[in-house]
């Protein structure tokens, strides 16, 4: 069996994945996708990919486009482009979670700066503004009043990308200064950690200085995490939850999960579980 791991920025995680794949007797290649081009109207390239591709690109659009191209050539990719589309866009994720009855923060979307103030008033301050596409807590802002909101909107309006001129607003959920990251692989939680906000930071992303500590999820959390993972299409996912007053609340599902922090905290063999799942999937 041959496994191709596609990347555009090689991290510790990809090196661990290669190591585990080799230990499991799997022929593995690392493919730097920045070197590739495709005739997308033609046939599958002869020197194409292995039996299955594990998509690990750090760029969302690059990852999505490549997955689409490979799937069009009949190559099996984990995660699928459908999963990538749902998880990569917070608007789609929020709508799906709510529709499935999974507790998720109340979310308003405003289609221009003309309606964003009214949307925030309707939602109630403080409001959390997030980019539709993005990660690591980047550009996530907390507006405690209309003045702060106005400043954020003014800044976003000055950006060139039209997606910045639409607004995704969420209620600020009262919670302990931490959230939960559960790594789900093939319908099983393989690691779960608290992400404890660092210093004065309110965001709980590891990229923003949060520290991780492992814990064992209870039945309620396990159920909601697995339900969310299945809802978005399954595969290898990072499901983020908050401990709200109403119970566990899912606020995000990540498609290309980073697990360096979780692995250090939990000592779980996350890379091994991922590779085992990919090998299992290739044989199905």
């Amino acid at each position: 069996m041959k496994l191709s791991i596609t990347f555009d920025r090689l991290r510790q995680e990809e090196k661990w994945l290669v190591l585990e794949a080799k230990k499991l007797g799997c022929t593995t290649e690392l493919v730097d996708v920045k070197n590739l081009f495709f005739d997308v109207t033609g046939k599958k390239p002869k020197n194409g990919f292995g039996d299955i591709v594990l998509q690990r690109c750090i760029s969302y659009y690059r990852s999505l486009f490549l997955t689409r191209i490979l799937e069009n050539f009949g190559v099996r990719v984990i995660n699928t482009s459908k999963v990538s589309e749902v998880c990569g866009n917070k608007l789609i994720t929020s709508m799906m979670l709510a529709k499935a009855g999974i507790l998720t923060p109340k979310t308003y979307v405003s289609l221009s700066s003309e309606s964003v103030t009214e949307a925030a008033e309707a939602l109630g301050y403080p409001v959390v503004m997030k980019p539709f596409v993005g990660s690591w807590g980047r550009m996530i802002s907390l507006a405690k009043d209309p003045q702060t909101l106005g400043t954020i909107v003014e800044l976003k309006e000055s950006l060139a990308n039209p997606i910045e001129h639409m607004y995704y607003l969420q209620e600020f959920v009262e919670r302990p200064p931490r959230d939960i990251r559960a790594i789900v692989v093939g319908g099983e939680i393989v690691a779960s950690v608290y992400r404890n906000a660092g210093g004065d930071e309110w965001r709980t992303n590891v990229a923003r200085g949060a520290t991780t500590s492992a814990f064992k999820p209870d039945k309620e959390l396990t159920e909601i995490v697995l339900k969310a993972a299945e809802l978005v299409g399954g595969g290898i996912l990072g499901v983020d939850a908050m401990e709200s007053k109403e119970g566990y609340m899912i606020h995000e599902v990540n498609n290309t999960v980073e697990f360096k922090g979780a692995q250090a905290a939990s000592k779980d063999k996350i890379a091994k579980k991922i590779v085992e799942y990919v090998i299992r999937s290739a044989k199905q």
Binding site: D8, R9, K34, I58, S59, Y60, Y61, R62, P131, V133, G134, S135, W136, R138, M139, N161, G238, N254, N255, T256, V257, E258
Partner: peptide, 11 residues
């Protein structure tokens, strides 16, 4: 030179 982080980078 390594690529510089873009807005769509992440998980």
């Amino acid at each position: 030179p390594a690529e510089v982080a873009e807005e769509d980078w992440g998980e």
